[in-house]
Design a protein around this nucleic acid. Structure first.
Lengths: 244, 244
DNA sequence: CGTGCCAGGTGCCGT
DNA sequence: ACGGCACTTGGCACG
């Protein structure tokens, strides 16, 4: 396809809020939070209807260059080729794309109001524990969630059957040494604020060897629980609720 | 476009290692590390030549659903529509895409050997400091980089003009409370291992108010330095080297 | 393979 | 705007 023709497709697509797909050979330069050069090659350029921009190579998950939604786009043909300058003010950054050959350039009016539901995340683990604290320990009572201590947040604050304060930190993946350190830091903050030494329970599907030995030293308890199991429990409960 | 025609485009594209772009109405279900449902809507489906898969909505940077490179793809037409089952074993997960309407389906043989160079990252800050330790403090001598302490890594280990050990932790962005805690943790490890209390210097373009007050308490020093400045210094040095 | 850590991370939510 | 934090984070380097 001709560069001039492609420019027209892009301009009309931009003005009508369509999603534009250009397949072609291009190079790009980015300057902003970082600085990058992308040499010539065949790529997929996507300009979405919210003016977010993606340059995808023919492999891999990530775009090689991009701009977030809402950039200002300036398009023109120069002796270099079809030049797109995509810039924004905060943070100040610019992506300059030079398209030298166009294999395809089309725009589409895409209507997407489809709901997106995601489960089996940390949020589900939290919900399941709030719903049934016994998952962590029999007799546990939830006091507060997302409690702010200083600048940080504690997933769940609870009280055990003997009346002692319990800090619960939830991780959806294998708990690391850092996670153990984090909950200890929370405990220090809580003790400073409430004047009582809390118990510390790390809830995660597994725990690394290093984290396990550190947790012994720092008196952090570990309870095995997974996002998948949490989701199953919640689904079952929801199913029952429908019956009752 | 007809679903059967689109299926043929996809199959031939897959067998010849092309990058496939389908624009159409679809819904999807993902199960694996998490679980998600995506209701019907207009989207952009990309199957790259390495068999990575991306479903992009008409807005935003991120794909709504995806699969990393190397999945096994099964495509067929059922009464639901054009069904793509993309699965992999480790971790076990599957993305099931049902395309009900196709606006466009094309495949392209993309050749992309273009180099990608990126600068002004943490790596550049480290390189600049190793090259000219005076940036951090006059008289500083680098001892070791990426020193492993336990399971963790210290960016730079150095010795100051008075012979005291210095731990340097580099951050490309504003230093947070957590960064201060991290370097203190490193210092504890170093003291345990080397038997001497090290100085702790946090190098970052800026520091949050909370982090600054915490650094006072925990005796963490702060030195202002940015990835951009590091990159400029390195570029200048490289330019000089060419002359000498 | 797991383990740690950076990333132009992005996105969400809160002050 | 800054701050904290999860994410199917992805990506890389290293033991």
């Amino acid at each position: 396809m001709d560069l001039a023709e492609a420019l027209e497709k892009i301009m009309s697509g931009l003005s009508s809020g369509r999603t534009i797909i250009v397949v072609g050979s291009m190079h790009a330069h980015y300057a902003g939070r970082s600085t990058s050069w992308l040499a010539e090659g065949d790529r997929l350029l996507i300009i979405k209807s919210d003016k977010s921009i993606l340059i995808h190579r023919p492999t891999g998950y990530e775009p090689v260059n991009w701009q977030p939604p809402g950039v200002v786009i300036n398009a023109q043909i120069t002796e270099e080729g079809l030049v797109l300058e995509c810039s924004r003010k905060s943070p100040p950054e610019i992506l300059r794309i030079v398209i030298t050959e166009v294999y395809s350039a089309e725009s589409y009016r895409l209507v997407d109001n489809g709901e997106f539901i995601i489960h089996a995340r940390e949020e589900d683990m939290k919900a399941a524990i709030i719903n049934s604290p016994d998952i962590v320990e029999p007799g546990l009572r939830i006091v507060e969630t997302e409690r702010r201590i200083g600048d940080e947040y504690i997933d769940i604050l609870a009280v055990d059957s003997s009346g002692q304060i319990v800090i619960i930190e939830i991780k959806r993946k294998r708990a690391t040494r850092r996670d153990v350190e984090q909950i200890v830091d929370y405990a220090t903050q809580v003790e400073k604020e409430l004047g009582r030494k809390p118990r510390k329970i790390l809830v995660a599907p597994s725990i690394s060897k290093e984290a396990a030995s550190l947790s012994m030293v720092l008196r952090v308890e570990y309870k095995c629980f997974s996002p998948r199991l949490a989701y199953e429990i919640l689904s079952k409960k929801k199913g029952l609720d429908r019956f009752l």
